[in-house]
C-alpha cells in the first residue's frame, strides 16, 4: 500500500510511502482527493517519499490549494530529503509554511 492512512486526535494522517512522480501522481491524486472532502485536518507524512519530481510537487501545491478552498488545515510533516531538496530548490518552504526538520543522517547535498 503506497498510502497509509491513520487517525489520531481527529487528525487524518496520510503517510505517502512511495515516490511522488509523474508515474504515481494520477493515482495519488485520486486517493488523496477523497480526504479533502472529509472536512478534517490533514497531516501528510512525507518521510517515505524517496523521489519527487515536478508532478509530485504540483500535487502538493494542489493539495495545499484545495485544502485552503475547503477550509481544511493541511500540514506537511517529516519531509524526506528528496522533498526538502525540491522545496528548497524552488524556494517553496515558506509557501507551505510547515516546519521542516532536517534529519542528521541526510547526505549532505
Amino acid at each position: 500500500m503506497a498510502i497509509e492512512v491513520s487517525e489520531k486526535n481527529g487528525i487524518t494522517i496520510i503517510a505517502i510511502q512511495d515516490d511522488m512522480t509523474i508515474y504515481t501522481a494520477s493515482e495519488q491524486k485520486a486517493r488523496l482527493s477523497k480526504y479533502l472532502q472529509s472536512g478534517r485536518e490533514l497531516q501528510i507524512n512525507l518521510s517515505g517519499v524517496s523521489e519527487m519530481d515536478s508532478a509530485g510537487l504540483q500535487l502538493l501545491l494542489w493539495l495545499k490549494q484545495e485544502a485552503g478552498r475547503n477550509a481544511i488545515k493541511l500540514s506537511l510533516v517529516r519531509h524526506s530529503q528528496a522533498v526538502v531538496e525540491v522545496l528548497e530548490l524552488l524556494n517553496l518552504t515558506g509557501h507551505f509554511g510547515d516546519p521542516v526538520v532536517i534529519s542528521a543522517n541526510w547526505n549532505a547535498s
Binding site: Q28, K29, A55, L59, W62, Q65, R69
Partner: peptide
C-alpha cells in the same frame, strides 16, 4: 492550477 477535480496531475 485548476481547482478541484479538474486538476490533471499529469499536466504541468
Amino acid at each position: 492550477l485548476p481547482t478541484g477535480e479538474a486538476m490533471d496531475p499529469e499536466s504541468c
